[in-house]
Amino acid sequence: MGFATSKAVDATARQPEASGKINSILLLGLALAESTAIYSFVIALILAVK
C-alpha cells in the first residue's frame, strides 16, 4: 500500500492535471490490496462465531 501511494504521489507530481484519474485508480488498487485482509477477517469471524 505504501508503495502504491508513493507511486501515486510521484505520478501526481509529474502530472498534476491527471490527479483525479490517478486518485480513482489508486483507491481501486488499495481496495483490491486490502481485500485479502478483509477476506481473512471474514473467514476468521465465520470460524469463530459459527
Partner: peptide, 13 residues
Amino acid sequence: VSLACRLFGNMLG
C-alpha cells in the same frame, strides 16, 4: 462474492 465480502467485512469491522 468479493464485492459482498469486502463491504460486509469493512462495515462489520
